[in-house]
Write a protein that binds this DNA or RNA. Structure first.
Length: 597
RNA sequence: GGUCCGCUAGCUCAGCUGGAUAGAGCAACUGCCUUCUAAGCAGUAGGUCUUAGGUUCGAAUCCUAAGCGGAUCACCA
């Protein structure tokens, strides 16, 4: 029996007997008691004074007295300024813990038969992944896990933006300046190599613009007339016409990028159930655009370009096909969405994990899909997250202030290594064990740092702070797990194996033990909340609180010096559940926990 | 200019379905390792919750306006 529900029912009954007033159990709001007062649950009397026809203070006193006499769970109470603080019996806490200890998959919901699709990552294939992608990938992957924990069947997908003017830019630069360079010939990671040519393009492009401007051309026109830019445009057109030479180069260079991405995804610990490629969805989008013209939902301008008019929705007109027939970003997103709902007809929701600078884009996309008559358009949701800023300001790829994903992850692992070596606690580890530990710690620290913040908010990435191993960090939580693991190893050696009835005669609990049980009881609620709001930060915050609670207990109470066998077994059981919960909650964030560190 | 988002301790963030004296971490200062891992624990100090109105028994939380910062309004993705 859930503690909160028992209390709600008892309070409801009390209102009926004491005040002859009807108050439904599920309408009763209880809040956690502030730590400066005695008790665990607080009933705020003000809103109910109307029902009790007594002032809040009086209501609280009558209610408290009645509960102590009639409720099995209430031991004591105090009323402070209209707040009724309830102290529960230790038996109640032990009972609640027994249920948790016994639970099959505590905190997780059984399958609910619903399917959702979540998209994340979705990089362009013209440059390597960076810090912003890390937030995106960790967020999307974590939300997927959290939704699974809430009983959904989840499909993790991404759309790889493998075609378009951006990749053509890299291709042109490689044709002009590449001299046949390949990842094999230069030893460069494929995505880095292609990214270098994207930068090269931009440098040359700027030079050409400057030259044209010098000759008296307006900047805007120079941007369109620069020869290298025109070459990129030509390549795009040739690509859409599937000219073999261009198509092959495109395939080769994308192949290099995919090889590079694979390595990065593997390090990140992120994966996908299905990949969509823009190159194979944009044609469907084109068809839709043309069909839309026939249906009269879209219109064509004199130059042949296709547009949608959303002015009646408070938005603007939006281009869907260029005059030369080539498609834009929006075109392929229409095709992709349709394809996905065709592939997975049962999905009840599609979540797009994409930065908040694209809010307008998705707003428009969903409206277009609705206009085309797709009823599922309203089930599309843009999980919009904030930018990652650096202490030096915004990341700008063209100014070289981008934090590369591979470099950053490596740096985190290196730092974990240095810090661990300094402490010297795992000097007996084999090389492989040590390497694994450094990766668990370094990647964990990074993931936690990026996930503990509300995704909707923009956040500051301070490299100094991100590699901190104290305080509200993954290593702190991982350390707590390692400590518990040491205790459980010892308990195992001593043959202490608590079961459901091992602590039936336990007659008193310490405050820190009650605190842990209270926090554990919150876990299912937190998993649900994190799922409803697509907020891994709820889990991050929770698991930190749990670790803190355990560390206080660890510091205050000795386990193995305890003579009372019931108390000893209870503490082992409590430690077991905390370790499992830490492990599972961190798992929802994609963070592993070591048994020694 | 229109639309949207943010503003809480020196810094980074919780709290936001209205509840008590607004919480953590970092940084600073003070204690605690012959005891299950000190990557820890306990404590001190640090706040007109951007401002002004309003609703309410009660507002960091809801409403209105202003200020500051950001995003967006591309034949870029």
């Amino acid at each position: 029996m859930n503690i909160e529900k028992s209390l709600q029912q008892d309070i409801s009954k009390a209102f009926s007997t004491l005040f002859q007033a009807e108050l439904k159990a599920d309408e009763i709001a209880l809040q956690p008691t502030r730590k400066e007062f005695e008790g665990s649950h607080t009933f705020v009397c003000f809103p109910y004074a109307r029902l009790s026809k007594k002032n809040p203070e009086e209501t609280g006193k009558l209610l408290g007295t009645h509960l102590v006499e009639n409720s099995e769970v209430v031991e004591d109470f105090n009323v402070v300024k209209g707040f009724l603080n309830l102290v529960l019996t230790d038996a109640t806490w032990v009972g609640a813990f027994k249920d948790i200890f016994n639970a099959e998959n505590f905190g997780f919901q059984p399958a609910n038969g619903k399917e959702v699709m979540i998209e994340y990552s979705s990089p362009n294939t013209n440059k390597p992944l960076h810090l912003g992608h890390l937030r995106n990938n960790f967020l999307g992957w974590s939300v997927a896990e959290i939704l699974k924990a809430n009983g959904y069947n989840v499909h993790k997908v991404q759309i790889i933006n493998d075609r378009g003017i951006h990749i053509c830019k890299s291709m042109v630069a490689w044709q002009l300046y590449g001299d046949g360079e390949t990842p094999e010939s230069s030893g460069k990671k494929g995505d880095k190599l292609v990214g270098d040519y994207y930068v090269k393009f931009d440098q040359e492009y700027k030079k050409e613009i400057a030259e044209l401007e010098k000759k008296g051309m307006a900047k805007e026109q120079a941007e369109k007339e620069a020869p290298i830019f025109k070459k990129a445009q030509e390549l795009l057109l040739k690509w859409e016409n599937k000219e073999p030479e261009v198509y092959q180069l495109w395939q080769t260079m994308n192949g290099w990028v995919y090889d590079g991405f694979d390595v990065t995804y593997k390090t990140m610990g992120v994966d996908f159930d299905k990949l969509y490629y823009e190159s194979s969805t944009y044609l469907l989008g084109k068809e839709q655009a043309l069909e839309g013209v026939e249906k009269g939902v879209f219109f064509q301008k004199e130059d042949g370009s296709v547009w949608v008019d959303l002015t009646d929705e408070g938005l603007d007109q939006k281009l869907l096909l260029r005059a030369d027939g080539t498609s834009v970003y929006m075109t392929q997103d229409i095709g992709t969405a349709i394809l996905r709902f065709t592939d997975f007809p049962k999905i009840s929701k599609q979540i797009y994990t994409v930065g908040n600078e694209q809010e307008y884009h998705f707003n428009v996309l969903f409206k277009i899909l609705a206009k085309l008559g797709y009823s599922w358009a309203k089930e599309c949701y843009h999980l919009s997250y904030g930018m990652v800023d650096l202490p030096t300001g915004k990341m700008k790829s063209r100014e070289g202030t981008v934090v590369d994903a591979d470099d950053l992850m490596q740096e985190m692992v290196d730092t974990a290594k240095a810090h661990t070596a300094e402490l010297g606690k795992v000097d007996d580890f084999t090389k492989e064990q040590a390497k694994e530990l450094y990766e668990i710690l370094g990647l964990g620290a990074l993931k936690y740092f990026l996930l503990k913040v509300d995704p909707r908010k923009r956040m500051l990435f301070d490299p100094e702070e991100s590699i901190q191993f104290h305080g509200n960090t993954a290593p702190f939580i991982q350390y707590t797990h390692a400590r518990i693991s040491a205790i459980l190893r010892k308990a195992d050696q001593l043959g202490i194996k608590p079961d459901y009835n091992s602590f039936d005669n336990l007659n008193s609990l310490h405050g820190s033990e009650v605190g842990i049980i209270g926090t554990l009881s919150d876990y299912p609620k937190k998993v649900k909340e994190a799922g409803e709001n697509y907020s891994p930060d709820v889990i991050a915050q929770y698991v930190y609180d749990l670790a803190k609670d355990y560390n206080r207990f660890y510091q205050e109470i000795s386990i193995f010096n305890e003579e009372d066998q019931d108390a000893l077994k209870f503490r082992i059981a409590l430690s077991t559940v905390v370790a499992q919960t830490i492990q599972k909650a961190m798992g929802l964030l994609g963070i592993k926990v070591p048994s020694r560190m």
